[in-house]
Design a protein around this nucleic acid. Structure first.
Lengths: 199, 199
DNA sequence: ACGATATGAATGAATG
DNA sequence: CATTCATTCATATCGT
């Protein structure tokens, strides 16, 4: 693949491909781990975990967002916050649907989503409104409008492009506040329990 | 009608950053999932779980650059920090009564500010949003401390400006788009063996 | 180092 | 729909 150097510095990217590659590996590994664990669990437990659609997750078992909010008492649930499940579903619908959810559809969606958490039609409606409005903001970039004639930082090159099609790969972009513990969220601490910190 | 042709765009995050973010999120998700599953498993069995399917990881398969990443070399995820110059200009404009940051105006401002450092329309937009919100909520006044329009802006700006000259406007993003792993790495297939919409 | 504060950014909800 | 407001999250900086 060819990349065009816009700033003349192909080497000063904050993250090298190598690092990125590592990230990818990590993900792949986690996929495997999760699958293995799931299998393991299911093999010796009568409690259906995945067979029932991974309800454990929905039940707040793992949803970090829910967990965090509830930890705070959650008494102040002024503003609805979609659970990861709900978000995923919404994203899915958004992707296929022309983004023009008719009232009837809204109702359906709401019903469906209500199985994964508290939600109202209004929420769904708003969500789609916002989703659409916000994706409207691509970044054609091009701040070069009239950079006048200064010549200080030519290194700046907002390589913007590519719409915000982020919701795709899984629609899990709402995990921003997920606990991303320490930079070294290696699997070590996962595998060795919480003892790896001991040293 | 002038739809956002190619300029506007309050959302102009460099996509590399975004993609990396997505990767990080995915990993984070897997971390959580794995932890939960592990916990589940362990609660049911005392068997050596680690030696089961995780060997692959420990065997060095897992090679995180994690440790080196967020140390301080900083990856891409940095929030914009206005330079003193930019801040002054912003404050100026804010006070001038153009408290109505019209999209049009935003663009102008951005262009101007971009001469003093990396900045995007989104940054400007956010800045005004926050500035206004903050002013409103912050009415405690009476605190002759150092509020009002004294030297709040300049002081802070100068302080942070030099100090935080690390990833500032200079060498920010030059990286191009990174290749994205297969979207299939999403945890969908993990979470659901079924479809979400049973409608 | 940890905790408080300031502030950039994300986003649900409201308004036109 | 397009914008704007309000609330919240996350992180940088500073204080003890």
């Amino acid at each position: 693949m060819d990349r065009e150097i816009q700033n003349g510095a192909y080497d000063d990217r904050v993250m090298t491909e190598e690092q990125i590659e590592t990230l990818r590996k990590q993900i792949a590994i986690y996929v495997v781990i999760s699958e293995q664990l799931l299998l393991l669990y299911n093999s010796l437990s009568s409690s259906p975990l995945i067979s029932s659609g991974m309800n454990a997750i929905e039940s707040g078992f793992f949803d970090p967002m829910v967990a965090s909010s509830s930890a705070h008492g959650m008494s102040s649930r002024h503003r609805w916050t979609p659970t990861s499940m709900q978000l995923q579903i919404l994203e899915n619908i958004y992707k296929e649907g022309s983004g023009t959810p008719n009232p009837r559809r809204i109702r359906e969606i709401t019903t469906e989503l209500s199985e994964h958490g508290q939600i109202s039609e209004k929420n769904v409606y708003n969500w789609f409104q916002n989703r659409r409005a916000r994706s409207k903001r691509k970044q054609p970039q091009t701040t070069t409008t009239k950079m006048a004639g200064q010549a200080d930082d030519a290194a700046v090159a907002v390589t913007t492009e590519e719409r915000r099609s982020c919701g795709d790969s899984g629609g899990f972009e709402s995990y921003d506040h997920i606990l991303f513990p320490t930079p070294d969220l290696g699997i070590e601490h996962l595998l060795s329990g919480k003892k790896f910190m001991d040293s």
